[in-house]
Every structure is written in structure tokens, then in C-alpha cells.
């Protein structure tokens, strides 16, 4: 990786102006990401941001790296295919809670299990922002602000960190759009982790969930080092309030696929000649 000497976060921003509402948490994620890139001195030409569809998934166009804005829910699949084919690249997938845990839920659990060396940033605002405020898989059961579910979704929300752990993710962190400096550190660490790294970001939707400004009162920073024991992490993720930030879990596990060994034969037609 070619390091850019003394690159500043703004050097990583593209000229495309974000479509986000003023006050949207996704701005902070963009800022944290470019800050992390500057801190790592990442080469823009060797970096790819991949996303699905949603307000959050618009982010790649706002960064001056290579990018792929795909279809709803499939960013993780694109990112894994890319990384397996091009292990030399730094690949970061990102998207929203609807994109990653609902329509793309199957890809999320399998990405955790597969452990390809990519980073996944889920920008969770507990709502479908782009389609104007419907409940998502992380919305509280009694959230009754959507006409589509006037009495609230009525089902328990997912716990993304618990889901990631159960699916085999080796590295799990949580950040908050209200603390972009910490988020930048988490993203930098995630990118450097040699395997699948999951950054769950509490990123408020100011338009459809203005009550999320109250998050700052409940968000806390974890002081203790990351858990390395899956039992302890399971107990934490099942019982916490979901507002604890920091690197929460870090277990050593070999990334997939393993390095290729040189082959003895490259003749692929030999089996067809009798």
C-alpha cells in the first residue's frame, strides 16, 4: 500500500455533495471514515467502498476512492467477491440496518461466518430512512411513528452484535455518530484487523427518528479491553443496552480463503483426452 504523506481527511472526500438531511448521523460516519483513512495514510487507488441501497449506502460516491453502489442488501456479497478476487485491495462494505440486517441479512450472517478480510460498517438508525421512515429489524417493538406499522412493529429488534458473534464474526466494535473521533479510531482498527471486522454504528436519522438525539445521554465508552472469550461476549451482547461503544470483541481466527499454493499442473484439458 502506497502511503500518502500527511494526507488530510478532506483529501479523501470527493466533489459530490451528499444528499443527506442536515444533521443526519451519516455525515459523521463519512467524516470518521476519511479521518481514519488519513490516519492510516491509505492509498485511494487501492481502496474500494462497496454499498447497497439506502441513505447510508450513498456514501461511496462521497469518498475519493474506487466505489461500488450496488443493489439493496447485496453490498457485502459484492465486497467479498471483490476481495477474494483481488486480495491486494482494501475493501470496505457499508450500508444501513435495513440493507444489512433485513434484505441482506443472509449475506451478513454468512459474511461473519466466512471471515473474508474486509470491514463492514453498518450505519444503524433503526429505521428505513430512504423510503421515508418505516420500521427496520432494529426498530423497537413499540415504535409507532410509521403509518405502515401504526401500533409499532410489535416484534423484538435484532441485536446485531449478538447476531454477528453467533455467526462467527471474529472482530466486533460499536461506534456512535455523535463521537466521530472514537469512530475514526474504531474504523482504522477495523481496517487493520486481518479478517472480517464488523463496526456497528449508531447513526441517527434526524428526520424520521428525531428522538435519537437522546442517544447521547445513554451512549457509553467501554473502558475494558475487547473480550476475547465468546461466552463472555455472548453474555455481554445478549444483556447490554446496546449503547456501549468501543472494540467489544476480538478473537483470533484465520481469514478465508487461505493463501493459494502453487499447482503442479495447469493443463485443464488433460481429463478430456482419453
Amino acid at each position: 500500500m502506497n502511503l500518502i504523506a500527511k494526507a488530510k481527511p478532506k483529501d479523501y472526500k470527493s466533489s459530490v455533495k451528499p444528499i443527506w438531511c442536515p444533521g443526519c448521523g451519516h455525515f459523521s460516519v463519512l467524516n470518521a471514515l476519511t479521518k481514519a483513512f488519513a490516519a492510516l495514510g491509505i492509498d485511494k487507488d487501492d481502496t474500494v467502498l462497496v454499498s447497497g441501497i439506502g441513505c447510508s449506502s450513498r456514501l461511496p460516491a462521497y469518498v475519493d476512492s474506487y466505489g461500488f453502489h450496488g443493489v439493496h442488501g447485496r453490498g457485502l456479497a459484492i465486497a467479498q467477491g471483490l476481495k477474494v478476487a483481488r486480495p491486494d485491495l482494501t475493501v470496505i462494505a457499508l450500508g444501513g440496518d435495513g440493507d444489512g440486517f433485513s434484505i441482506g441479512g443472509n449475506h451478513f450472517i454468512h459474511a461473519c461466518r466466512r471471515n473474508v478480510n474486509i470491514t463492514y460498517i453498518a450505519m444503524d438508525n433503526e429505521v428505513y430512512g430512504m423510503t421515508k421512515g418505516q420500521a427496520s429489524p432494529t426498530t423497537a417493538a413499540d415504535w409507532d411513528h410509521s403509518k405502515l406499522t401504526p401500533h409499532g412493529p410489535g416484534v423484538r429488534p435484532f441485536k446485531p452484535a449478538a447476531l454477528a458473534l453467533a455467526s462467527g464474526a471474529p472482530w466486533i466494535a460499536r461506534g456512535y455518530s455523535g463521537n466521530p473521533n472514537q469512530l475514526a479510531r474504531l474504523i482504522a482498527e477495523a481496517v487493520e484487523h486481518p479478517g472480517f471486522s464488523f463496526v456497528h454504528v449508531l447513526s441517527q436519522c434526524i428526520t424520521f427518528c428525531p428522538e435519537q438525539t437522546d442517544w447521547k445521554a445513554v451512549v457509553s465508552e467501554r473502558e475494558a479491553p475487547a473480550l476475547t472469550d465468546a461466552d463472555a461476549a455472548a453474555s455481554l451482547f445478549l444483556h447490554e443496552n446496546g449503547f456501549q461503544t468501543g472494540v467489544l470483541y476480538n478473537a483470533a481466527r484465520n481469514a478465508w480463503p487461505p493463501e493459494q499454493v502453487e499447482r503442479q499442473s495447469t493443463d485443464i484439458t488433460e481429463g478430456f483426452r482419453l
Binding site: 474500494v48 462497496v50 461500488f68 450496488g70 443493489v71 442488501g73 447485496r74 456479497a77 459484492i78 465486497a79 467479498q80 467477491g81 471483490l82 476481495k83 477474494v84 478476487a85 483481488r86 485491495l89 443472509n106 449475506h107 454468512h110 480463503p257
Partner: peptide, 23 residues
């Protein structure tokens, strides 16, 4: 590389991702 994907949605998108990488 050959990846056995979790479903066809993943399969085609992994294929697109690798192709975007020039492979």
C-alpha cells in the same frame, strides 16, 4: 477462485464484485 455462495443473490453479486476488480 470458486466461492460456494449462500444463495444465488450472493452468487451473482460476488461475481459482479470480482468482475469490478478486473477479474
Amino acid at each position: 477462485n470458486l466461492v460456494q455462495a449462500e444463495d444465488e443473490l450472493a452468487a451473482i453479486n460476488m461475481t459482479i464484485g470480482a468482475a469490478f476488480g478486473g477479474v
